[in-house]
């Protein structure tokens, strides 16, 4: 039996093969098409729309709009509340990031040094991460209440007279930062623990042989250097989350008093959805987007480097 039936012209065979191969192509495109559609419709289209909106004077509900160039941005940069929100956000980040990272690191180190109650500690510290922020913010609101709140009662016992934490211009942002740390440090702890688990035991053995066998020596010469990349990661992750602070602000202070706790995302929300200034809100969004994208790119760059190291 020879292959007479296959002796058709080469092009025909090539065409048939092309068909099977474009079959795989077609299948692949079928598989990615929903994602592709949504990617364009729900992500890239909207981003383009935001940029477009930011150049118009459009207000929700109105049927006309005009391109007004960068007038929205000019208004934004001339608006003291924007600058207030920006500086507040930066201050918030500047408090929450070190607080979260340090607390998370210390807790992780302590949890990992010995197995006693390890499971309990891990769960306890992680609980805030899982909890619904809007509900817990309400709870924090009562804890920070000037008269019946736990904080002022405790201070009272120690003979210190507390303040009205959330209504005082000096303390409102600080109180929110405290809540931010409370919610985030358990997550930092978990990331640090997984970083600690990845430190090879041989390094400790080597350090011990080299004479670094005290707890602090081990920490200084082995643990902390090895945690460098994880720390970088946690810092950036926490920074990103802090830039996104919204729930606690909305629930507790709504940016007050007198914009003392106004932050970018809350500003964005109020301008766009309370006042329906879509053009202005879009300009604010563009600025916000730029900040976050910059931060994420830094993270990607750093993570890339981490991959190269290991």
């Amino acid at each position: 039996m020879t292959a007479l039936d296959c002796n058709r012209p080469r092009e025909a065979a090539a065409k048939a093969r092309l068909a099977t191969r474009s079959g795989e192509h077609g299948l692949a495109w079928l598989a990615v098409s929903p994602a592709l559609l949504l990617l364009v419709g729900l992500l890239f289209g909207p981003v383009a729309a935001v940029v477009l909106f930011s150049l118009t004077d459009w207000q929700l509900g109105s049927f006309t709009f005009h391109f007004i160039g960068i007038a929205n941005f000019r208004a934004l940069f001339a608006d003291p509340t924007f600058w207030k929100a920006l500086t507040n956000t930066l201050v918030y980040v500047a408090i929450v990031v070190p607080g979260t990272v340090l607390l998370g690191l210390v807790v992780a180190l302590l949890i990992e040094t010995s197995p006693g109650l390890r499971g309990f500690y891990r769960a306890a510290h992680f609980l805030p991460v899982m909890s619904t922020m809007s509900a817990m913010a309400i709870v924090w609101g009562t804890m920070l209440h000037p008269t019946i709140g736990l904080v002022n009662r405790a201070l009272g016992v120690m003979g210190i007279s507390g303040v009205n934490w959330l209504r005082d211009e000096r303390t409102a942002l600080l109180a929110l930062a405290l809540i931010g740390i409370w919610q985030g440090f358990g997550f930092a702890m978990v990331l640090f623990v997984s970083g600690l688990k990845a430190v090879p035991q041989q390094l400790y053995d080597a350090a011990a042989v080299d004479g670094a066998d005290g707890v602090l020596d081990r920490l200084r010469f082995v643990t902390l250097p090895m945690l460098g990349p994880v720390t970088m990661f946690v810092v950036i992750l926490t920074a990103k989350r802090s830039f996104e602070v919204f729930d606690s602000v909305r629930v507790l202070t709504q940016g007050g008093p007198n914009y003392a706790s106004e932050v970018l995302l809350h500003r964005l929300y109020t301008e766009s959805f309370d006042f329906l200034h879509m053009g202005y809100g879009a300009a604010l969004t563009v600025v916000y987007l730029a900040v976050i994208v910059l931060l994420t790119l830094t993270q990607a760059r750093l993570l890339e480097r981490r991959v190269h190291y290991s």
């Binding site: 020879t2 292959a3 039936d5 296959c6 065979a13 093969r17 068909a19």
Partner: peptide, 19 residues
């Protein structure tokens, strides 16, 4: 894997368009 050119025959039959 699809070849770029040439033919595969199994039992005398061209199988290039078969899965």
């Amino acid at each position: 894997e699809a070849q770029n050119s040439g033919e595969v025959l199994v039992a005398g039959r061209c199988v290039d368009d078969k899965r």
